[in-house]
Nucleic acid binder design. Structure first.
Length: 152
DNA sequence: GCCAACGTTGGC
DNA sequence: GCCAACGTTGGC
């Protein structure tokens, strides 16, 4: 059984529309160990909720899917790059990324407020621990959110 | 723009 | 290994 995930992106930086245009993208720049560890657990085909953070309002904007399992974030090796990390060695990469492909944009954007109010989502990570940028989602939670976004 | 939450760093 | 200082995230 595939595991489900929620991944945050600031729409000013990279939105669901950008993902639709690109078809797929590499999820570079994660510099948090817990988020990194979660990405390393991802498998190709895992469903992803694409979440717009730092938006007005914040919330789930679309659906995506893991299209490539974790591989080293090579930007961590590029001196001068925004995501350069001198502590990431070529033979032992510190940071990893996955590729994510576009599945669909929700007919109805699902704001964080609605997630918080929805029965069944009380324990969803995004409604409790706001800062983690890559989060595990229970399959039943994923289904509820997908339904909220496609109603009507 | 503020600031609470929280992750990381570094001195000891 | 503790913990204060500091930096970042992200909702509001």
């Amino acid at each position: 059984m595939a595991r489900c995930w929620l991944m945050k992106s600031e729409p000013e930086v990279y939105s669901i529309d950008d993902l639709e245009r690109d078809g797929s993208t590499c999820w570079e720049g994660v510099r948090n160990y817990q988020a990194r560890n979660l990405m390393r657990e991802m498998e190709v085909g895992d469903p992803v909720l694409f979440y717009h953070s730092n938006a007005k309002p914040p919330g789930v904007a679309g659906l995506a899917r893991v299209s490539r399992a974790a591989y080293p974030d090579h930007f961590s090796w590029e001196a001068g790059h925004k995501y350069f990390d001198p502590k990431s060695a070529a033979d032992e990469p510190r940071w990893w990324m996955v590729d994510v492909e576009y599945v669909g944009t929700l007919n109805h954007f699902v704001p964080l407020d609605d997630l918080k109010a929805e029965p069944g989502l009380e324990n969803m990570v995004v409604t409790k621990r706001s800062r983690l940028s890559v989060q595990p989602v229970r399959p039943e939670e994923y289904d509820i959110v997908a339904r909220m976004g496609t109603k009507g």
